[in-house]
Nucleic acid binder design. Structure first.
Lengths: 262, 262
DNA sequence: AGATATTTGTTCGTATGTATT
DNA sequence: TAATACATACGAACAAATATC
């Protein structure tokens, strides 16, 4: 369980240090978390209601509510009003996970170069990984996505949509990876780039030549994935990323230090 | 700002949708976040006290406290009691970020193979990145870390400490990378492995031969880093990871589905 | 070191809002 | 529509923590 009190000592050995949670609220939140794992509750399962929790922990309403609020923010429960309401176990959404991770990176300076240093190695990896599971429906989704930016945009709005769809292409690919860790990392990088676009109005002046070259890469990628050609998939994606990086670095922008829009 | 209400529509275009936050608590939390960015508050800066917030939002104490609790869990503020107390702006610690990300991965099945698929490409990357900034003090830290597992352990406790220190070696390397994103990812993977150790009591029977080979890799790595030899650093780390993966996969364990210990 | 003032932490009682039946 | 069951919000009081004198 995540005690999560930010007591930063490195924890030598296996003996459990008692962080001695100062606040009753945190104690209760931890206790509830504990019962969640102990009873291996699944999403949708209901926790005891406020009044029951009040009795169980002999705490007041406000204290119990703060504890539940903590769990809610952590994406572990969802609270519903009305009859049959209460706190229900929930799995944290990817969106929220990214939002929280974004808060962590808020203070750090993350450059486009940093993002692409990771994308260059991870996108090829995830493409190969996705290749093993993707089906005809998946290929169809990819082609439909390409169709969005297959042509010159008519207005600023469409140009913006096209830039987002270009990232969505990679997002769809990552969806088909069975490596949840890898998939998340890659999609998070894409999210950072989307944010960058929103913030700094990058992607304003797409160079048609480079853009067309990117689409070619993606079509070749689909072909290679259909052929289940590991090496080719990885190579094409690596080249694609190299080009994209070059394109982005020319803009010399820095990812804004801001909270991520949820 | 992170509205973070998990309203999952893809947000077409740039126009801001009003999520119409239902709960007063969430409204207030968002409002406070907003002022934090608008005034570009730095860590250590103080927010208005409870009573002031109560007045500002004409909300009750409990409501304001729930809002602050939300910000606290997100790692954005820290609350202190006593005179001059209140909510102070804080940067989310790496520890908390990992804990929250761990909650997201709780439901997913993450295997050792998944972790090493990432480590194999990221550890070489981060080593090269760190090489550019690491100084003599850093090398000293690395050598001191190696000294912990340089010899046969005397008891179970020391053996456990040694396993943790082996991961700490890589953690120290990652510390010196200026790519915050890369550094975090790599250290998070190490954290998962540490957790794995705690959970499944893996690392019980270290094979002395393989262990010694790992130490050789690390000594060679330090030498190559001192020489500022990009390629050699990357190659050594890649080989090191390949061996480590082989070693771990033999155990055929799966990362436990559990919340991460903070 | 001890007393005191300040501010968060917790409690209880009550009233309101909301979803289900 | 009305009754019910639950979360949500309010307000006043008290307890605990902590900085200052």
């Amino acid at each position: 369980m995540s005690t999560d009190t930010d007591n930063s000592e490195p924890r030598s050995g296996a003996e459990k240090r008692r962080p001695k949670l100062r606040k009753r609220t945190d104690e209760i939140a931890e206790a509830i978390k504990l019962t969640m794992v102990q009873h291996s509750l699944e999403p949708g399962d209901r926790l005891p209601q406020e009044k029951d929790l009040m009795a169980q922990f002999s705490a007041s309403k406000g204290t119990v509510r703060e504890a539940l609020k903590s769990l809610e923010v952590q994406g572990l429960v969802r609270i519903r009003t009305g009859p049959g309401g209460g706190a229900f176990v929930e799995r944290m959404s990817e969106r929220r996970a990214m939002s929280l991770l974004g808060n962590y990176l808020f203070a750090k300076k993350v450059t486009i170069a940093d993002i692409y240093a990771l994308r260059k190695v991870l996108e090829p990896l995830v493409a190969v990984s996705a290749m093993r599971l993707i089906d005809e429906a998946g290929f169809k989704r990819l082609e439909e996505t390409i169709a969005i930016y297959d042509h010159e945009p008519h207005d600023a709005q469409e140009r913006w949509d096209q830039r987002m769809a270009e990232l969505d292409f990679h997002s769809v690919v990552a969806e088909y990876s069975e490596n949840a860790l890898l998939s998340f990392q890659v999609r998070f990088l894409q999210r950072l780039l989307k944010d960058l676009a929103v913030c700094h109005d990058i992607y304003q002046q797409p160079q048609p030549v480079l853009r067309q070259r990117g689409i070619e890469f993606q079509r070749e990628l689909i072909k290679a994935m259909r052929a289940r050609d590991d090496k080719k998939v990885a190579d094409i994606m690596a080249d694609h990323m190299a080009l994209a990086e070059q394109q982005m670095l020319a803009l010399e922008a820095e990812v804004a230090n801001r909270f991520i829009e949820a």
